[in-house]
Design a protein around this nucleic acid. Structure first.
Lengths: 236, 236
DNA sequence: GCTCCCTTTTTGTGATCACATCATGCGGCG
DNA sequence: CGCCGCATGATGTGATCACAAAAAGGGAGC
């Protein structure tokens, strides 16, 4: 089996389509579904060990969120292509939304939440120095999420998550090298400092700076002509 | 039949679930599904004249977008309650997103697009003076949409639509009176002027002003204690 | 008259099946 | 040797059915 999809089981009150959605979402976020890989309802259903129905609902929901797109005449689904222009758009939106979230969070964050965010930043620092990309990505997400959740705006956090899932498959694939990871850390510590100072303006500026610098690396990778071997991999 | 849902038919290449989704979305947007009204899969399927399957997919998608919410222990769906706080959150997000869209649009809008936006503003002006709320709402949406589409950011436009559908049922229900409609017009004309001048900063400010003033009316209505007769209406 | 419990109905979830459509591969013909 | 056509398989869509859980309705007991 050349897919990362593993079987799910029915548990207590959680519906199968919810478990299928969560599992597929996690795989996409972590870049375990390669761009170009084809996902069919029957194939994913077989890999997950359930019937077509819950998988169909999960895939349709992921499609409505932009995490997947109908490919080859809507016949099969796959990771949407991310052009440099599309990413520039997402980046511009992120600056607005995550800037807003950070600004609001700075105004009402508790000491405990600042401590949690700081801990995530320490994790990022360690992962960057160790060159552990997967850990860096996970810690980076936890870091940002811990800030945004502190603003008490659930709709906003959900929208931000919807943006991250679109770039997730690509940041996981084309990750910058160790030096770039280390260079990204000062901006993150600036954000922590802004939170500690309860400075909303500085927090927004720090987020914008972080998005801008990390985005530059990804845009460069996206504009680089793709490798030859594409359209590989099959679900089942 | 005490519901506004009317039957849909299969046409050429459009899937039934797409037609069901579009129809239900339109009804929600226009406030034709009252808050508190219960929507069941079987009931809506019967009203639409199709089986449960396409309706189920449509309702699940609308739920994932926040346009509907599982009510009464996820047993039945309905319009989500809109608290004043929830609306304040949406309003804050709208200021960022629609401000961004207007700012970008002002920088690259064509003369033809400005003319179309102006025409929608004229429609709004006429509807406001005539006290035609339904026409005002429709023209207002066309006005804003024509601006946002000019910025060439499809993801951003989709996100803005996702915000409008959440407040749609309530703006259609608790609409301000004629005087408030007329008072809202100068801000809209300011936006048109900003577009003509290709002034991005002014366009963003105009949008923020419009959202702020129109939002004040709705917040006042939301904070007013609800009428007694709630939880009425049935689909089917 | 009110409350509690049991029966009936309604509802969402998931599985299986039927069907039209599209891709694919194989064989024959030029 | 290359190209076209047909047949076979794969796929998404939609319908129907089975099942468990939750809601609703009614009747008996206090």
């Amino acid at each position: 089996m050349d897919t990362a999809i593993s079987a799910i089981t029915a548990t207590d009150g959680v519906t199968l389509q919810r478990r299928a959605y969560d599992e597929l979402r996690r795989l996409i976020m972590q870049g375990l579904i390669a761009p170009g890989q084809k996902l069919s309802i029957r194939g994913a259903a077989h890999a997950l060990g359930v019937s077509m129905m819950p998988v169909r609902a999960a895939l349709q929901r992921l499609e409505s969120e932009g995490a997947l797109v109908g490919r080859g005449g809507k016949r099969v689904m796959g990771i949407p292509d991310l052009t440099a222009d599309a990413y520039r758009e997402i980046r511009a939106i992120r600056v607005e939304l995550e800037g807003l979230a950070a600004e609001r969070a700075a105004g009402q964050v508790t000491d405990a939440q600042v401590a949690a965010t700081t801990a995530h930043c320490v994790r990022m620092q360690a992962a960057a120095e160790a060159g552990d990309r997967a850990e860096y990505i996970a810690a980076n997400w936890d870091f940002h999420l811990s800030i945004y959740q502190a603003c008490g705006m659930p709709t906003l956090v959900a929208m931000i998550e919807g943006l991250w899932i679109r770039v997730g498959p690509y940041v996981a694939t084309m990750m910058p090298d160790r030096d770039a990871l280390i260079r990204s850390m000062p901006a993150h510590w600036d954000i922590v400092a802004a939170l500690k100072a309860r400075d909303g303006r500085a927090a927004r500026a720090g987020i914008a700076s972080d998005i801008g610098t990390s985005g530059a690396t990804l845009i460069a990778a996206l504009e680089r002509p793709r490798a030859a071997g594409k359209r590989r991999g099959q679900a089942k």
